[in-house]
Design a protein around this nucleic acid. Sequence first.
DNA 1: CTCCGATCATCAAGGCTTTGACTATCTCGC
DNA 2: GCGAGATAGTCAAAGCCTTGATGATCGGAG
Lengths: 176, 176
Amino acid sequence: MPDSPEQLDYVSFVDYAIDRVTAGGAAVDPVAMRLVLTLHRVTSALVYDVESGVHRPRGLSWPGFRVLFVLWLAGPLEAKRVAELSGMSRAAVSALVNTLERDGLVSRSRAEHDGRAVTLALTPGGIESITDAYLAHNAREQVWASALTGPEQRTLIGLLQKLMDGPAAESARRRT
Amino acid sequence: MPDSPEQLDYVSFVDYAIDRVTAGGAAVDPVAMRLVLTLHRVTSALVYDVESGVHRPRGLSWPGFRVLFVLWLAGPLEAKRVAELSGMSRAAVSALVNTLERDGLVSRSRAEHDGRAVTLALTPGGIESITDAYLAHNAREQVWASALTGPEQRTLIGLLQKLMDGPAAESARRRT
DNA sequence: CTCCGATCATCAAGGCTTTGACTATCTCGC
DNA sequence: GCGAGATAGTCAAAGCCTTGATGATCGGAG
């Protein structure tokens, strides 16, 4: 039985909340509730951990890292493609690149064949930065993953992919 | 074999990225990489879907919903407790409550026994708002969860909890 | 009783995100 | 060829987040 409100903490609140809500007897699915709550909490913790431990000390933000990562692997790209591959809006990429350009990590140039488009590319400093940051990033990913056995890791990936293939993710997959 | 950069999309980029990075031969764990990438993408998609489909149309943000949700279930609480239970910083709660108070959903009052503390409570309008929003929120959670069978849902929750109990989440769990 | 360190809330600066509007440019049908 | 509609990038307003400082209050040591 969940604690009383006075002694709850971040973790036990999930149990408490599920208990309270389902006591109402309404059309609430406690398993779906716990799934979403737990998924969101794990991801928040992971992003906070990696961002504050790996990227901020190097002068990067998590979103900045994502843009650098995409450009690092998929070469010079138009801003629109960066937005698609990183899952951000074009406006967000534009704003983010202001910072990355100011810091000398990314360069903007007009696309050859299209006067509207802008081509984004890593500068030498950007390449150096992402190479270093990614090694530390993956090292931290390995610490997170080490909480699970190899087979568990693969099972988790499979279940997350199935979630991404489900009906609810439909709208998100179509977002450009 | 992953596509060439020109034909990549949000989903196939993950395969492409893993292929490119591991080709480098460095000390990179592709499974940990895929795990974190997939986890982050699923959660982003879910938050975007629920926020834009459920909360924004009702005049709430996802973080605003979280604060209302905590206050709804755990009664009037001091701002510090709300921060702990919702996993936000005290400064973030303070800023968020400015909006919620302006919108007439939450009220601030000085705590009885401590002149420094502020007690937060839902207004009648706040109760009405969160009651309605939560039903729609859970309905959408059920759509997401429906991509998995019941046993799969429980397995996923278990694996996520194990991740949260692992060594890497240590720092995040201690965050107040 | 008083002082000093701890704690609470808030503010300030800087960064990221969203939506919607706006400009420049491209492309296709006629 | 040319005009209409689509598209790329950017800007603006509003909101939320973080860290670090600030001011008020608490509580215990002496």
